[in-house]
Simulated assay, not measured.
Amino acid sequence: MTPAKWVRIWNERLPGVPLTLVQVPAAEAPGVLRAGEADAGFVRLPVDRTYFSAIPLYTETTVVVVPKDHLITAAEEVTLADLADEVLLHPLDDVFDWEAPPGEPAFERPATTPDAIELVAANIGLLVVPQSLARLYHRRDLTYRPVVDAPQSSIALSWPEEATTDLVEDFIGIVRGRTVNSTRGRTTARPAADARPGRSDRSGTQQNGKSAAKSSGKSSGKPAGRTSGARTGGRPAKPAKRGKPRRRS
Rank of each mutant, 00 (worst) to 15 (best):
E104K: 09
Q23K: 08
R145Y: 03
L80R: 06
K241T: 11
W6D: 10
G173V: 01
G31A: 03
P18C: 09
A156D: 02
I55Q: 04
A100C: 09
S249F: 13
F171D: 00
A4L: 14
E37C: 00
I124N: 08
A40H: 07
L89R: 06
D97F: 03
T179M: 04
A75R: 14
Q152N: 02
R248S: 13
P15F: 00
V66I: 11
T2E: 14
A122H: 02
T164H: 09
V129T: 05
T227S: 15
L19I: 07
P223T: 10
Y58Q: 11
D141W: 05
V180Y: 05
P197I: 10
G209L: 02
T179S: 12
I72Q: 00
T50N: 12
K214L: 14
A74P: 00
V87E: 00
A122T: 01
P30K: 03
F42Q: 08
S215C: 05
E108Y: 14
P102K: 10
D97S: 12
L80M: 07
T164S: 07
K5L: 08
R247D: 15
R242K: 15
L21S: 06
W6Y: 12
R34V: 13
R140I: 08
V43A: 09
E162K: 13
G234V: 05
I72L: 15
A237F: 10
R242A: 15
G41P: 02
P3V: 07
R13L: 08
P130S: 01
P239A: 13
A106C: 03
R13Q: 11
G204W: 07
P30V: 10
K210V: 13
R145C: 03
V47Q: 07
G177P: 09
T62N: 01
L19T: 05
T113C: 09
P239Q: 10
D93A: 06
A237Q: 14
T79L: 06
T205P: 06
E12G: 10
K5P: 06
T165P: 07
V64G: 01
V175F: 04
T79P: 05
L89K: 06
I172F: 04
L126R: 08
D149P: 10
L89D: 03
I9G: 03
D94V: 02
T143I: 06
I124R: 15
R8W: 02
K238V: 02
D166V: 10
P67D: 00
T113N: 09
P102N: 12
P146S: 01
A4G: 09
Q152W: 00
P46V: 13
S211Y: 10
Y51W: 11
V129K: 03
T61V: 09
A26Y: 03
V65K: 01
P110G: 13
A4Q: 14
D194I: 07
R109N: 14
T164M: 03
W10G: 01
R190I: 07
P236H: 06
R44Y: 04
G217N: 10
G221M: 03
A54R: 02
D48F: 07
T59C: 06
V47W: 05
R235K: 11
A156C: 05
P245I: 00
L126Y: 00
A150Y: 05
L167T: 13
A100R: 14
A40C: 10
N208V: 02
